[in-house]
Design a binder for these strands. Structure first.
Lengths: 156, 156
DNA sequence: CACAATTTAATTGTGTGCGATTTAATGCGT
DNA sequence: ACGCATTAAATCGCACACAATTAAATTGTG
């Protein structure tokens, strides 16, 4: 019996055993990997995700974008204002329900999509795994993510 | 041929296909899941990771901690100052090599370990997967992470 | 030994994330 | 119609991440 035996609460507190650290650290690496390519489009990684959501469908509310990305208005409002200043999106109050703000794309915002198409392919190669492996990993992560979110919600 | 056919660069720009988004979003969920438990110890999630590194070995340099967590001094210096103000760690210049700052634990910092031991077990349950699945997922992620970091380094 | 290159932290500035609160608009029950 | 709960964004404060730069100490080389 020694420190490498792998049982006891001890081993749960070792960094090398942490799934959460693997997730955290990989996420940081993803952002760093995207950064040089996105900088060429004048985007940060979270801004890019917002643009992806809008490229799929224009004129969504802040809430709708927030649900898709699991981000709240505290994060999105300033981010969207920056995208607006950059001339990529539009923000206007919904005339029917004035609580809502509708986010649309400018011509520039739509055009940027073309330039963005090469990025996921390049990053996919940097991941160093096959499309099938990526798909499996993505599915497993989304399951874990949904479980975590469910347990957070349950605690409320 | 339609929008759901799944080929063409088009499908690479769909959020639901993004491995990177799965990683990003799961990482955010991990932080939120840890937050209430860590708040009871007065720690944030990145601070907790630093403590885990120090619980494994005391008196490491900022660089050594940074290598283990893939964080630079721009992130670590202010974080470590906060842990110092909280009375959990000590910071002192190495007298042999005065470029380095050695990070140690206070009695309080060492004691906090005991209270932290229950956390990974509770979070592990929130993940909703078996220990084996977690181990596999962790290994796959670390491979992806290392590939990403290698591709970032290669670009320099 | 001199001194340029390297190494280690700290600093600065920008952009997230998120808890908590606030503001304004809408819905809903009586 | 009234008032109250609910909802949607915005705001505020704090703590990361990280690129870029700076400052100080050490190392390596002639």
């Amino acid at each position: 019996m020694n420190a490498t035996s792998g049982n006891a609460p001890d081993s749960f507190l070792k960094l090398e055993n942490f799934l959460c650290f693997a997730i955290y650290s990989t996420a940081n690496a993803v952002t760093r990997a995207y950064q040089p390519r996105l900088a060429a489009l004048g985007l940060t990684y979270p801004q890019y995700l917002v643009m992806v959501v809008l490229w799929e469908r224009e004129n969504q509310t802040v809430k709708s974008i927030g649900e898709k990305l699991s981000l709240d208005s505290g994060t999105l409002t300033p981010l969207l204002k920056r995208l607006e200043s950059a001339g990529l999106i539009t923000r206007r109050r919904d005339t029917v329900d004035e609580r809502q703000v509708l986010i649309g794309l400018t011509d520039d915002g739509r055009t940027t999509r073309k330039r963005a198409e090469a990025i996921p392919i390049a990053i996919g190669q940097a991941f160093g795994c096959t499309l099938g492996e990526a798909k499996d990993l993505r599915a497993e992560l989304m399951t874990v993510r949904d479980n975590l979110i469910a347990s957070i919600d349950k605690a409320k």
